[in-house]
Design a protein around this nucleic acid. Structure first.
Lengths: 347, 347
DNA sequence: TTGTAAGCGTTATCAA
DNA sequence: TTGATAACGCTTACAA
């Protein structure tokens, strides 16, 4: 089966390859009748231009890369939705890379992306990362980079984040307002941008309420469910005064639920829980989880739009294009007073 | 800043481009000292081969495409995890495309992928698809295709599925065994492979128990949460005899929860619910959801392995390579007898 | 062991 | 308005 390429079209039409190419690209210097002939045959033969050839020639891959820690996570999958939406609107393709929170993986992905395979990158850094020279060198190669949610401040480019500090401050205050006196904070990593900011919001809210900060009440998680549940249980046994948990990521809020269940502690009677989360089922949990919900889809979309503005205008991204979106505190049963409601039944 | 390519390396080393290329590819006909010199400079300059150039020359893109309806869904995101894992092990890149259950989108994605951008495709078809000629033409172009979960039987290639029929049969029987007499079935689409099989399992289980099949109890959903909840509520009001729901996809199980809550119906006292689901939080719901859980990660991994076997050996994929994995029925509170448990508290 | 040159499929420059 | 030709960066016969 002969391949369908420009040469083939040109031969069958008795035209030059150049003319066919220009006709398909709708250039002004080709006559309408010729364009029509070319297009007709092209669609008849299902011609599709070879992206590797045109990519090589034009130095454009029409592809962006997305680097995230995990995809089995509502926050990131919603963000991907937003990114894909914008990419498609721009006729771009999306390569996806998962770091699984692992520094080594992030470094190797960065190396892969340094080759011109993508015209731009959107990244949310791994919790295991401490050194960022692999990202610096992408920046140096002139590949536009946008950070979202988990950023690396050391690079002058746009960051799309949420108001983590304020949200954490509010979330903590909400726990205190709900009667908690001994609130533990579950953190993913101190070295992560969001880790720092969310911890700081917690610390400052305690201080604002005149409650001393207690280092022992801050748990740094492993991002391993079984281990993290274990850690939380140990803390609960060691510190029976704990009456509230503020989880800085969704998975840790779920670990709290499991830990409390294992220890037969009631949420919210014994322990109140609040967590950053994009769980669709938050309101269906037992009890419904009070959440700080980030606009994940909007974050992905916004970040992608910034990236594509840079790609299409061919200008570098300035740090001043950074955007901070607002998260929302949604109060539900896990921080409420527990009430038994008797409801009217329809049958 | 001069670009770092083979020419640049060759010039600085006083070697030919060909020699440098062969040295970097570790060919046997290059001397060790030369290889060392080349590699040293390459790594010093951070040389990365241009994938578009080598792809064009070798006719290999080192990329696969994944086409799925949604990513904000545990089943698909876990499958992606499995796919990405295998792709990375093979040094391949993963392009991702979301159809949002829309036929038109699937067609346009198929056209994009017909161009040689990918060496193989993994797809789970959209519920809106009825015609599959867009996929047939990919097959005709010689692009290896593997279907997972939602397949298109019309194409002779491998399908990676689960034992949908048996699972549905069992799930339905479990509801009947739990005392249900009027079980409704929530289906995504009759035209979908999984839709048909899951419906059939339900129908046959009813029959096996001597319960007549009632067309009115089968709901074909819109994949739109608000609408689907509305539809379920209307059905519940119209048919007060309904005492069980079998949801063929996760989102519909959640819609049942919402609908029952809106109507003040208790699960499992008034209505029992079972659903296909990969929700991590199934056990934390109120009540915990009885699920048919598919081995989503294994499905993605298995499907990718089949694809890569075909790509590396350069042989077409035979239908005989199809694999059927087993789903698991996990019984939880949503189909149980409701019991109020008083637990010992640790404090 | 290394170099020369052709070619992958496309686009851009220049000439006709 | 069209055609011939070079070039994108790489790999691979074939020559030396």
């Amino acid at each position: 089966m002969k391949p369908v390429n420009l040469k083939r079209l040109a031969e069958e039409l008795n035209l030059s390859v150049a003319t066919v190419s220009r006709a398909l690209n709708d250039r002004y210097d080709i006559s309408q009748p010729t364009k029509d002939r070319v297009r007709e045959l092209a669609s008849k033969l299902n011609y599709e231009p070879n992206p590797y050839a045109s990519g090589l020639r034009r130095q454009k891959s029409k592809t962006i890369g997305v680097v995230i820690p995990e995809v089995a996570n509502h926050f990131f999958s919603l963000a991907i939705n937003g990114i894909e939406e914008v990419a498609r609107a721009n006729n771009y393709h999306v390569l996806i890379y998962l770091t699984h929170e692992d520094y080594e993986r992030e470094v190797s992905v960065a190396r892969l992306l340094a080759s011109g395979r993508v015209e731009g990158i959107m990244i949310s850094v791994a919790s295991g990362s401490q050194d960022y020279s692999h990202l610096d060198s992408l920046q140096e190669k002139g590949i536009p980079l946008v950070f979202f949610d988990r950023v690396h401040e050391g690079i002058a480019t746009a960051n799309v984040t949420t108001n983590d500090y304020e949200s954490s401050f509010e979330a903590t205050r909400h726990l205190l307002d709900s009667g908690c006196r001994s609130v533990a904070h579950l953190n993913l990593s101190k070295s992560l941008s969001i880790g720092k900011r969310r911890l700081q919001g917690y610390v400052d809210a305690l201080q604002a309420s005149g409650i001393p900060f207690d280092e022992e009440l801050v748990v740094h998680a492993q991002a391993n469910k079984v281990q993290d549940i274990e850690t939380i249980q140990e803390l609960l046994l060691k510190r029976p005064d704990i009456d509230g948990f503020f989880a800085s990521v969704e998975s840790l809020a779920m670990c709290c639920y499991e830990a409390c269940r294992n220890l037969h502690l009631s949420i919210p009677n014994d322990i109140k829980v609040i967590g950053f989360s994009n769980l669709e089922t938050a309101s269906l949990l037992d009890p419904p989880l009070t959440t700080v919900t980030q606009p994940a889809y909007a974050i992905g979309k916004e970040a992608a739009q910034i990236l594509f503005r840079a790609i299409t205008k061919n200008v570098p991204i300035a740090a001043s294009q950074s955007v901070e979106l607002k998260s929302e505190l949604i109060v539900r049963g896990s921080t409420g007073a527990s009430v038994d409601v008797v409801v009217a039944k329809i049958r």
